[in-house]
């Protein structure tokens, strides 16, 4: 029986702890380099490290591929990951849900903000054409969707949200190198708070390096990562609106 309270990596034998890894060390290539890599991995708490490949990168750097055995185990039964809880409905169900429970069109404003010029992600969620066979929000008869495109300032996004009396704001952030997206995402929430709009709006962020957990930490209502489709987002928005009973008539 597999004991899910003590889990270790698996290669070809239960509990063998097999891991593969690769990294570079800033040391010149040679036997000393390989030994350094081996010792380094041993220090990480891994047993029997084997350097199976080492390569001179130039500039006194060496690249390694290693195999080793992990010693630590974790208890899988205690793992908890914050997830978007609301059930995901399809295109038809969502529109019907809006008619039944909200009774007017839901207004959504979206943008890829700051200096970020990646539009494909937010377009996938919002544009008529949609993504991977799923229509985007613009296609939903019960949703008024405004896609502002990319390189949109937080101020412009908020202005638009006020102008169209939005129910939800969608923010896309794709460039995340050196955490460039964090100040921008936090700024939006701060600005919404300052304007007293935060509670009235469902505020959502998304992008390949974002997830729900991070989004909650940043003060958003939800966060979506790679592979998200429009119904995932729309379902969350409408459930959240009903939950808050914010429907304005």
């Amino acid at each position: 029986m597999n004991d899910l309270r003590h889990i270790r990596p698996y290669g070809d034998t239960w509990d063998d702890g097999k891991v593969q890894m690769s990294f570079s060390l800033p040391v010149p290539y040679g036997e000393e380099a390989k030994e350094a890599a081996r010792q380094y991995v041993a220090k990480l708490g891994l047993l029997e490290p084997q350097v199976v490949h080492a390569m001179d990168l130039g500039e006194e750097m060496t690249f390694f591929v290693l195999y080793a055995k992990a010693t630590h185990a974790i208890d899988f039964t205690t793992i908890k990951v914050p997830k978007v809880e609301s059930p995901v409905m399809d295109f038809y169900e969502i529109n019907q849900f809006i008619k039944d429970h909200i009774g007017r069109k839901v207004v959504v404003v979206g943008a890829c903000t700051g200096t970020d010029a990646h539009t494909v992600g937010i377009d996938a969620i919002m544009n008529m054409k949609g993504y991977a066979g799923e229509y985007g929000l613009e296609r939903y008869p019960e949703i008024d969707a405004y896609n502002m495109g990319s390189q949109v300032s937080n101020a412009a996004l908020i202005r638009k949200a006020k102008e169209v009396n939005a129910d939800a704001i969608l923010v896309s952030q794709v460039v995340t190198q050196k955490d460039v997206h964090l100040p921008n995402l936090t700024e939006l929430v701060d600005m919404l708070e300052a304007e007293g709009l935060r509670q009235r709006l469902v505020v959502i962020c998304g992008g390949p390096r974002l997830n729900h957990e991070v989004a909650l930490e940043l003060g958003y209502d939800a966060g979506f990562g790679s592979g998200t489709l429009a119904p995932d987002v729309a379902s969350f928005i409408v459930h959240e609106m009903v939950k808050r009973q914010t429907s304005k008539f």
Binding site: S22, F23, S24, M55, L57, M61, F63, Q177, P208
Partner: peptide, 15 residues
């Protein structure tokens, strides 16, 4: 899909 190239990403690509 993850990051701008690390030193060994480039090595593997060139190789």
């Amino acid at each position: 899909a993850i990051h701008t190239p690390l030193i060994h990403d480039r090595q593997l690509a060139i190789e």
